[in-house]
Simulated scan of single mutants.
Amino acid sequence: MSDERAEPGHGRNPRRLSEENVALRLAWEMRQRGWSQERMAQELTNAGCPTHQSAISKIVNSKPDGSRRAISLDEAIAMAKVFGIPLEELPLPPEGAQGRDLHELSRAVTQEGRDAREQYARFVLAWARLRHRLSRQDDQTAYRDFLSTRRVDADRTSKAIETWLDADSWRDATAAYDVLERTLQTMGTGRDLTPPRQERRWRHSVVADLLRLRDLFGRRIPGSQVRAVPELIQDAADVLIRSGTLEAAIPVIDSCEQGQAHATEDVVAEIDTRLQQVIDREPRDRLDYLESLAARIGLRWKGSQTKPDQEELAAQLGASPEDYMDAKKIGGIYRGIGGEVSRS
C-alpha cells in the first residue's frame, strides 16, 4: 500500500483513500479493545510483523497536509490477523467495522443464548433431583442432620427445604426455560439475517425429542455402565425439559447419579404413551400428519434400514416416499432413533 498522491483534477486517489481507511480502522479497533499504541505494536510483532510504537503513531495520526505513513502489505496482513478479519475487509470505510461489530454482537447473543439454555437446563435438572430427594422424609432428615453439624439454624433449614419444594417457584423456573427456548427459536443460527428456513415445530418437533429419549432410555442407558449414565443425561437435559418427560425420568436419573442402576421401562412406557397421543390426534395440517407419521416410524424403527426396507415400511404405513422422508427428518430418524435431532 504505497503513499500515492491524487492527480490534479481527479480528487483523492482511491488507493490513498483505502490506505486512510486502514488507518481509521486501526484506530477504531484499538479503541474497541482499549489498546495503547505500544500494545498494538506488540500485537503486530507477535503476529510476525515487528513494529515499533512510533510506526503506529505515524499511521493513525495524519500530518498537517493530511498524509500518513505508508502501510506495508506485511503490516496489513498482520493487522487482519490480529483483528480476526479478512484482509479484503481492512481497507473498507470505518462504517464497515461498526457493521461487523454489530453483526458479531448478534452472533454473540445467539451463541450465548444457546449456551445459557444448556446451562439453564442443567440447573433445572439439578433442581428436579433435589426436589425428588427432599420429597422423601428420610432424605429430609439426613439433610437437616447434616446442616445441624454445620450449626445452621433449624428454621433456616426448614425454609430452605420449603424453597426447593415450592411448586410455584418450580413452575416459574421451568416456564422461564420455555420462554428462552421460544426466543432462541426465532433467531436462527445468528450467522446472517436469513429467517429460520423451517417452521419452529418442524425444526424442534416434540416427536424428535421423544424419539431421542426413547433411544436413550430404551437402549443406551440399559446398555451402558452406571457411571457413564450421568454424562448421557447431561447431554439430554434440554430435551428432557422441552419434552415434558423430566418428572417421569427423574427417579432413573437420580439413582444413576448416585451410582445405582434403575429400571427404565416406566420411562419408556411414558414416552410411548406420549408418542401414541401424537399418533391418535386429528391432524390439522401437513405438519401434524408428518409428526404422526414420524412417531409411527419411530416406534417401528429397527436401526439402519436398506432402501427396500424403508419402501416396505412406508407402504405398510400408507405413506408416500416424499412424506416418509420428510417424517424421518422431523423425527430425527437416521441410523438410530432420534440420534440426529436438528439443532437449528
Rank of each mutant, 00 (worst) to 15 (best):
R200H: 12
R200S: 12
R201P: 00
W202P: 00
W202N: 08
R203C: 04
R203E: 08
H204T: 01
H204V: 02
V206N: 05
A208L: 04
A208T: 04
A208Y: 05
A208C: 11
D209T: 04
R212W: 01
R212D: 13
L213Q: 02
R214I: 02
R214S: 12
D215I: 01
D215H: 07
L216T: 01
L216M: 06
F217W: 07
R220C: 00
G223R: 08
G223I: 05
Q225L: 11
V226Y: 08
R227K: 12
R227Y: 14
A228W: 10
V229F: 02
P230Y: 00
P230I: 05
I233V: 15
A236V: 03
D238R: 13
D238P: 03
V239E: 06
L240K: 11
L240A: 03
I241N: 14
I241C: 06
R242D: 13
R242Y: 05
G244D: 05
E247T: 12
A249D: 12
A249G: 03
I250H: 03
I250A: 10
V252F: 07
I253A: 12
S255W: 01
E257N: 13
Q260A: 03
A261P: 09
A261L: 02
H262G: 01
A263H: 01
T264E: 03
E265R: 13
V267L: 10
E270V: 15
E270I: 07
I271W: 07
T273P: 01
R274A: 09
Q277I: 07
Q277W: 06
V278D: 03
V278C: 02
D280P: 12
D280R: 12
E282A: 13
E282S: 11
E282N: 02
P283V: 11
D285F: 10
L287A: 02
Y289W: 10
Y289N: 00
L290W: 07
E291C: 15
S292Y: 10
L293V: 06
L293T: 09
A294R: 02
A294W: 00
R296M: 14
I297S: 04
W301Q: 12
W301R: 13
W301K: 06
G303S: 09
G303N: 14
S304W: 13
T306V: 08
P308K: 12
P308L: 14
P308R: 13
D309I: 02
D309L: 09
Q310R: 15
Q310L: 11
E311A: 14
E311F: 06
L313S: 06
L313H: 09
Q316Y: 05
L317M: 11
L317E: 08
G318P: 03
A319S: 11
S320R: 09
S320I: 08
P321R: 05
E322P: 06
M325R: 10
M325T: 10
D326P: 00
A327L: 04
K328R: 15
K328N: 06
